[in-house]
């Protein structure tokens, strides 16, 4: 066999392995789902339940899209839960006290969230303080700001003001069954496709990977490191704001105390999906799978009548096992 043939054969082998690598999170998802189909009551595999799983995943899923970007860049954002709460409060405040349209209110919430992401990014790059600390601080700052806007109270919204806002994650009504999934879920899917494309096909995406893989190399190669970081944290804030919009749609009140600790679920989703906390690795598909796996476990355990504490133990174990498996796979491929 000539050298050329050998190379091309290796090329195909590599592609197969690459394909397997991309699909492995999906296989894991199917496996977990099938497991519950086997052991949970028959109501688990119904369309209705699947739709519910999709709806329940949306809040974590949307926030996790932004977090994926941050984690690939080698950073972390602990302020996501607080930003979700802030976003609900801002939306409710705009609807109730400023009397703006639902769309303006929604955009206002997302913009406020993006602004706080921007602040995190600027602080991280200007002060040269590690993201963990900056966003830990921002977690409290933003939570405080949300409580301040709501005067330590939930902000109730007049039901007429809501219009379409409470439909985002509502179950699809019979007369619109062609939609299959609620608009909020579709939004998550579209955003996921957009983010995956951004990561793969744009300079920003490639620079984010380079930054996370080796910041020094990125600097050497003329990547505007600080600018990329600011954009990444701003986007993460914006996605947290969108997750807040979903949260608001579900609660229909602005609640400054909602989503405490949500950032940990979001980080877990990214990590289960193959994201590495040391940066340079992660994928949107993986992240969504990670978020889905966590919801499926919660849903399955509920249907089996297992108490909450069992769910938590199972979820915790899954996080560690998933990452350990991922490391193992890595050691073999590299």
């Amino acid at each position: 066999m000539s050298d050329e043939q050998a190379t091309s054969n290796q090329g195909t082998a590599l592609n197969w392995r690459g394909l397997l690598n991309t699909l492995s999170p999906v296989l894991a998802l199917v496996a977990v789902f099938e497991l519950f189909v086997l052991i949970a009551p028959s109501s688990f595999a119904t369309v209705r339940n699947i739709e519910m799983i999709a709806r329940q995943t949306t809040i974590v899923g949307v926030a996790a899209l932004g977090m994926t970007l941050v984690i690939i860049s080698g950073g972390i954002d602990l302020s996501v839960g607080s930003i979700v709460a802030l976003s609900t409060v801002v939306i409710a405040w705009l609807l109730q006290y400023a009397g703006v349209s639902p769309l303006t209110a929604a955009l206002g919430g997302v913009a406020a969230a993006a602004l706080f992401g921007l602040v995190s990014g600027v602080l991280i790059t200007r002060l040269r303080v590690v993201p963990f600390i900056v966003t830990l601080g921002m977690m409290l700052v933003v939570r405080g700001a949300a409580k301040g806007i709501g005067r330590e109270q939930k902000i109730d919204v007049n039901p007429e003001q809501l219009a379409w806002l409470d439909d985002l994650l509502a179950s699809v009504p019979q007369d619109r069954s062609w939609m299959l999934l609620p608009p909020g879920v579709w939004m998550m899917i579209l955003l996921a496709v957009a983010m995956a494309a951004l990561l793969r096909y744009t300079r920003l995406g490639r620079h984010t990977f380079a930054l996370g893989s080796n910041e020094q190399t990125a600097r050497l190669c003329g990547v505007a490191v600080d600018r990329v970081k600011v954009i990444v944290y701003t986007l993460c804030g914006a996605f947290a704001g969108l997750a807040g919009l979903m949260q608001f749609s579900r609660l229909t009140v602005g609640d400054p105390t909602v989503a405490v600790g949500l950032e940990l679920n979001v980080i877990a989703a990214v990590v289960i999906g193959g994201g590495s906390l040391s940066g340079g690795e992660g994928s949107i598909l993986g992240t969504l799978v990670g978020a889905l796996i966590m919801t499926i476990i919660a849903s399955g355990c509920t249907q089996m009548g297992l108490p909450n504490w069992v769910q938590e133990i199972v979820t915790g174990a899954i996080i560690v096992v998933a990452v350990a498996l991922d490391r193992l796979r890595h050691r073999r491929t590299v």
């Binding site: 990977f209 380079a210 893989s213 080796n214 020094q216 190399t217 340079g280 690795e281």
Partner: peptide, 12 residues
Amino acid sequence: EEGLALSLSVAD
């Protein structure tokens, strides 16, 4: 440490 981003591909 600096010259290459080791976890990225040759092309990148």
